[in-house]
Nucleic acid binder design. Structure first.
Length: 208
DNA sequence: GGCACGATCGGCT
DNA sequence: GCCGATCGTGCCC
């Protein structure tokens, strides 16, 4: 039985994305920086199935932005969106198949004080990493981390943690995607206060 | 607690 | 040009 602090091996990510996504719940993402360490226990994730998935950045093929998704598993794809936010995916599957898991929410289990300094807008600890862009900010992950190996000796790693009992794993529609083509590829831990509320899609921009 | 809306810019058509 | 794998604020229960 693995120690919760053991890192996940690359083989963990070298599986079909719909297998990896629910298995990431309860795992620990650790980022070591000069300021200190922050640990996030994953409570909500979403699978993106590359070429078969209209919601995926990789659906229309490789581009300068999404190149990391086409690389080997166990690396992090970081992208910029809405003109001001970053989100992070963990790349899955064999190299060349651009699948990944978006990390949507987590509970900060270590380094809370540091996370609060990075997330001054958070009114409570549960808001520190509730939402994909908040999670990235709490961990101080940035565009410069795009492509980093999370299975090696680098500052960003994923550890075994404690997976929830299977009965607590829920599954439903993804968040923030426009259009009818959607799939129940969001996974979360039942009863977790850090799980973000479901929104059918981003609100339309107001006219005028 | 929920809901509506503006911010802000890179990537893609 | 258009729009996004979003967030924070303001307002109202």
């Amino acid at each position: 039985m693995p120690d919760p602090h053991d890192p996940l091996p690359r083989g963990f990510f070298d599986r079909p994305v719909l297998e990896v996504a629910p298995d990431l719940l309860g795992r620990l993402v650790v980022h070591r920086t000069a300021d200190g360490d922050v640990t996030a226990r994953l409570t909500e994730v979403e699978a993106y199935d590359g070429p078969n998935d209209p919601g995926s950045h990789a659906y229309r093929g490789r581009s300068k932005r999404n190149g990391t998704m086409f690389g080997p598993p166990g690396h992090v794809y970081v992208y910029f969106t809405y003109g001001m936010h970053h989100c992070m995916n963990l790349v899955c599957g064999p190299p060349g198949l651009p699948t990944g898991v978006l990390l949507r929410a987590a509970e900060i289990t270590d380094g809370v004080h540091l996370a609060r300094k990075r997330r001054l807008a958070a009114k409570s600890d549960r808001e520190l990493a509730r939402g994909p862009a908040r999670l990235v900010e709490a961990l101080a992950v940035s565009r410069g981390d795009d492509g980093a190996d999370v299975c090696g000796d680098g500052p960003l790693t994923v550890h075994h943690g404690t997976p929830p009992p299977p009965g607590l794993i829920c599954r439903g529609p993804r968040v923030g995607l426009r259009g009818a083509a959607d799939f129940p590829w969001r996974f979360w831990i039942d009863g977790e206060p850090t799980v973000s509320v479901y929104r059918p899609h981003a609100p339309r921009r107001a006219t005028g």
